[in-house]
């Protein structure tokens, strides 16, 4: 053990004296390094590595082809204000990095779109879909004034706790209330919709594969079933739904509602607005979260720079040590 360590030590120090920071250690009695292998072994090793890489590549390509067996149509990526690729030409021209999704880093929700989306939800979707985790007070200073939000809440009737006589009563909503569900429970929802449960929309844009793009494409993806496709009684053909059959009929048609800011209410405009609104419902704190991330990127970069400089300063005397080897056994 000790002679081996001694031999290690000698080679280590002599290499260290050369000035490498990671000296290499060679032991001559085992073929531990590449350059000392025989010709045959080198060929064997190279072929082995090549074959492994080829096998890995084959496995990867087979895997990719398996993915195409999946019969789902993947939705395209749309330029959402808070997520997608921005297409403003002058901004893209100013940036050296065009591919980086700045919208994902510092894009916030579009207040006008949220306002229109709420109108679409209220007039079209609220008949069947609940939105249990959104309260009217969240709208204040996001896309409505306080008075408008109070008026919106007052349009809804909320069942409230026992009164002085012990009975539940109905009252108009307040800002603090959550948006009331159209049905009292899941069974009632199923009965009213032919056995299918209209899911709660509070998390739908993060709870479905494809996020907002999927929801938008689904709303726009209705088509006539191709020849040979048989649908059940309550089912409609949708290009993006898993299995292509969805229980919800197409809900958005051109001119279905009127927006209060005058935007033409085409079907795709309504689909985009309501999806944007649902994206807000799924992640209301996105704006403060992104601001925190931005702040913390700056702070951690500065702190990293400072810490790195100071560490190199502290380690300077150590890292640049040189060892002079003097063989005490050698007679001078």
């Amino acid at each position: 053990m000790a002679p081996v360590l001694g031999q290690f030590g000698r080679t280590v120090f002599s290499n260290f004296a050369k000035g490498y920071s990671h000296p290499k250690v060679y032991l001559s009695n085992t073929s531990s390094s590449f350059r000392e292998m025989s010709q045959g072994k080198k060929i064997l090793l190279t072929t082995g590595c090549f074959l492994t890489t080829a096998a890995a590549g084959l496995a990867y390509s087979l895997n990719e082809s398996v993915k195409a067996i999946d019969l789902n149509l993947h939705p395209p990526k749309y330029p959402w204000p808070h997520k997608g690729h921005r297409h403003e030409p002058e901004l893209l021209a100013a940036l050296p990095f065009r591919k980086l999704e700045l919208d994902k880093a510092i894009g916030l929700y579009d207040a006008a779109s949220l306002r229109r989306g709420w109108q679409v939800y209220k007039q079209v979707c609220a008949a069947c879909h609940s939105l249990r985790f959104v309260a009217y007070r969240q709208f204040v200073d996001l896309f409505m004034t306080e008075d408008e939000a109070k008026a919106e809440a007052a349009e809804a009737t909320i069942t409230d706790g026992p009164d002085a006589n012990g009975k539940m009563f109905q009252r108009p909503g307040k800002l603090a209330d959550y948006i009331p569900s159209p049905y009292p429970n899941e069974e009632a929802a199923r009965v009213a919709n032919g056995g299918a449960y209209p899911p709660d929309l509070s998390n739908i844009t993060v709870g479905r594969e494809g996020d907002e793009d999927y929801v938008f494409s689904l709303l726009r993806g209705y088509a006539d079933p191709p020849a040979g496709v048989e649908l059940g009684e309550n089912q409609h053909f949708n290009l993006y739904m898993q299995g292509n059959a969805i229980a919800m009929a197409q809900a958005l048609y051109n001119g279905l509602i009127e927006y209060d800011d005058g935007t033409p209410a085409t079907a795709s405009q309504m689909a985009k607005d309501v999806t944007h609104f649902l994206a807000y419902c799924a992640t209301p704190e996105l704006e403060s979260w992104k601001k925190y991330l931005f702040k913390w990127t700056i702070i951690s970069t500065c702190l990293f720079g400072l810490a790195w400089y100071y560490k190199r300063h502290l380690w300077a005397s150590l890292v640049y040590r040189r060892v002079a080897y003097r063989d005490v056994n050698k007679k001078h």
Partner: peptide, 12 residues
């Protein structure tokens, strides 16, 4: 200021 510049015209 960065967020308000980037999202100008879109905030409440």
């Amino acid at each position: 200021s960065v967020f308000e510049y980037y999202n100008r015209g879109r905030l409440w």
